[in-house]
Simulated scan of single mutants.
Amino acid sequence: MVISMTGFGRSRVESVAFSVNVEVKTVNHRFCEVNIRMPRQLLKLEDKIKKKINQQLRRGRVEVFITIEGEGRITRKVRVDWKLIEEYHLFIEQARKKYNIEGKVTLQDLLNRSEFIHIEESDDGNEELESLILTATEKAVLLLKQMRMAEGEELKKDLLTSILQVEININELQKYAPQVVSSYKERLQKRMQEFVNGQIDESKILTEVAIFADKVDINEEITRLKSHIQQFLKTIEEQEPVGRKLDFLIQEMNRETNTIGSKANDSNIAKKVVDIKSLLEKLKEQVQNIE
Rank of each mutant, 00 (worst) to 15 (best):
I49R: 01
F248R: 05
M147F: 08
I66H: 02
T135D: 09
S227H: 00
A140P: 05
I205F: 04
I205R: 07
V13P: 05
R40D: 15
I85T: 08
F18E: 06
I92C: 11
M5A: 08
D214P: 07
D109R: 07
S162L: 14
L164P: 07
L111G: 07
K50S: 10
T137S: 02
H118G: 07
N100G: 08
F65H: 14
I119H: 00
M38G: 06
N100Y: 11
E63F: 14
W82Y: 14
E71L: 12
A95W: 07
K145R: 12
E202R: 10
E172Y: 11
D109I: 01
L280M: 00
L129H: 04
I269C: 10
K175H: 07
E46F: 03
K284N: 06
S122T: 07
F18N: 00
S114P: 15
R96M: 12
G70Q: 05
F65I: 13
S262W: 06
S162M: 14
L42K: 11
S278D: 13
I68A: 03
S4L: 04
S122Y: 04
P39A: 06
Q251N: 06
L206K: 03
E238D: 09
L129F: 09
V80Y: 02
V64C: 02
L225V: 02
V274Y: 05
E93A: 11
R96F: 08
N54H: 15
V105K: 04
L45G: 06
E240M: 14
H118M: 10
